[in-house]
Simulated scan of single mutants.
Amino acid sequence: MCPRHAFSLVTFLIQSLIPGDPAAAILGPNGTPDQYEELRRSMHLDQPVLAQYGNYMAGVLRGDLGRSLFNQEPVAHSLAARLPVTLSLLVLSLVVVAVVGTALGVASVAAGGRTARAVDALSLLGLALPNFWIALVLVSVFAVAIPLFPAVGYVSFVDSPNAWATALVLPVTALAIGGLATVAKVARDGVSTAMESDYTRTLRACGISRRSLLWRHALKNSGVGIATVLGIAFIGALSGSVFVETVFALPGLGSLVVEATARHDIPVIQGVALAFTLIVIVVNLVVDLSYAWFNPKIRAS
């Protein structure tokens, strides 16, 4: 069984163990026993769990992700409507993590002393603070006490690029802080090690400036480690996006899976799990391909 199918099976089995009944939730307290049983049969909820999973996978292999148990909307349509929001949040947070984290790491090597210790402290603080707590603090400070940014909501980039960017400032910040601290620490350690290597001392003896050594040579030599951490940070942001989207009321995949879990809407949960799995596969592929750019030896092998 391939990892993608194994993940979908585990997700399906775990979801089946969560207390709740979609048929009872749809009918409410006024539904009769006959209506309840008929609805369960129509949604195939009266079948064994493995039989339900088999029906689901048969549909997936045909390109059909099923329909929501509550509003009968095709799961593929729900994913297509929500995916741009989640991707906007994840991609922007990755850009912030990569640019700001790497810059902080290299700057700490250039400055040394207190700056290096400050990066270490930032790394520990960023890893210790959960995303949802950071999100609540950001809302309290920059949306309530100092109303610079909206506390909730999302505007499509097509409708208004400025409103789109403004609405994502606080969510992206909340999601990026943990990964930013980690990347800064890894970049600092990698560049610091590269600056002490033999080839760097040779370049310095040839008259190459320290600035060029830091940003052109030592940083690229540390690229494999930084790319690896960026991939891990991106994947970790997938779980963080669930909490961040809930706090900021963003209509993305994270909030969709929270709603579906509360309603025991298995097809929607499976669809989101499949989308997240594909994102993880693509990110890992991009990280692996980046190794060849940072290290020519990998291309030659």
Rank of each mutant, 00 (worst) to 15 (best):
V75I: 09
H77W: 14
S78P: 00
A80V: 13
R82H: 10
R82W: 02
P84A: 09
T86S: 15
L89Y: 00
L89S: 04
L92N: 13
L94K: 06
V97K: 15
A98S: 15
V99T: 08
V99E: 02
T102N: 08
T102Q: 07
A103E: 02
A103Q: 03
L104I: 06
L104T: 13
G105N: 11
V106Y: 14
V106L: 11
A107C: 11
A107D: 00
S108G: 08
A110Q: 15
A111P: 06
A111D: 03
G112Q: 10
T115R: 09
T115W: 14
A116Y: 01
A116H: 09
R117C: 02
A118Y: 05
D120Q: 14
S123D: 13
S123F: 07
L125D: 05
L125P: 03
G126V: 10
G126W: 11
L127I: 13
L129Y: 02
P130A: 12
N131E: 15
F132L: 14
W133K: 04
I134C: 05
I134R: 10
A135T: 05
V137R: 09
V137A: 13
V137P: 03
V139W: 02
F142H: 04
F142I: 01
V144N: 01
A145P: 00
A145Q: 12
I146F: 13
I146H: 12
P147N: 03
L148V: 01
L148H: 01
L148N: 00
F149K: 01
V152R: 15
V152F: 15
G153R: 10
Y154K: 06
S156L: 04
F157T: 03
F157E: 04
V158P: 00
D159R: 15
S160H: 12
A163E: 06
T166Q: 10
A167G: 02
V169C: 04
V169S: 04
V169Q: 03
P171W: 06
P171A: 05
P171T: 02
T173W: 07
A174N: 02
A174K: 06
I177T: 09
A181T: 07
